[in-house]
Amino acid sequence: MTMAFLCMLAATRIQDIAQTLVDRFHLPCEYAFMLTTALRFVPNFLADSEITLDAQSCRGYSNRGNCVKRLLSYVVVIRPLVMRAVAKSETLALSMELKGFGSNTYKNMPREPLGAADFIVLGLVVVLSTYPFWK
């Protein structure tokens, strides 16, 4: 299932995922936006963690020792990472508020019908996902 999910994320635009969640699964657009925003920020969060780790290692941070010592010393990396994520989320919330998100502006999106290639890929994913069960 994880591989199928990763393949879907690699082959599908985030906007199409949000539109499908709203149209086909009748999920409120706020929840669909929240899910797709979380998917969009995962690579940014990983890049920020790498930048923060590099910056802390330039300042003399060392993650050597046993597991407990490494876990306690990782707080030095987590604090700036969380602060940066909170700042980005506040900026996103402000920009969404200024653009009028949630005022029924996403109800008028055009529907995109599924094509033959979509059904073929969907069938292939189902067959490959259930292969261990019917083998």
Rank of each mutant, 00 (worst) to 15 (best):
L114Q: 05
G115H: 04
D118F: 10
N44Q: 11
L71Y: 03
T91I: 04
V121D: 05
I120K: 12
A47N: 04
L53K: 00
I51N: 06
V68P: 00
L124M: 14
D54R: 03
F45Q: 04
E50F: 01
L94P: 00
V121F: 10
Q56M: 15
R70L: 08
T91S: 11
P43R: 03
A32W: 08
K99R: 11
V82M: 13
K88A: 09
P113S: 05
L98K: 05
P43N: 03
Q19E: 15
S73K: 00
C58W: 10
A32E: 09
L94V: 07
V42G: 13
N44D: 03
R64N: 02
V68G: 01
V125Q: 09
Y106Q: 13
T52K: 01
S95L: 06
E90D: 15
L46E: 07
H26Y: 13
L53P: 02
A116N: 02
L35N: 01
Y74Q: 05
V76D: 14
H26A: 14
L27R: 04
V75E: 03
A55G: 09
R84S: 06
L35G: 01
F101H: 08
V126S: 13
S95E: 15
V86Q: 01
T52R: 00
R40C: 04
L53D: 10
F33N: 01
L94A: 15
F41P: 02
R84H: 11
N44E: 12
F33A: 14
Q56Y: 07
T91P: 02
K99Y: 07
V125E: 12
S95G: 08
R70N: 06
A32F: 07
G60D: 09
M83K: 04
A85V: 07
A117L: 14
F45C: 04
L71K: 00
C29D: 10
V68L: 11
G123T: 05
V42Q: 03
M96T: 06
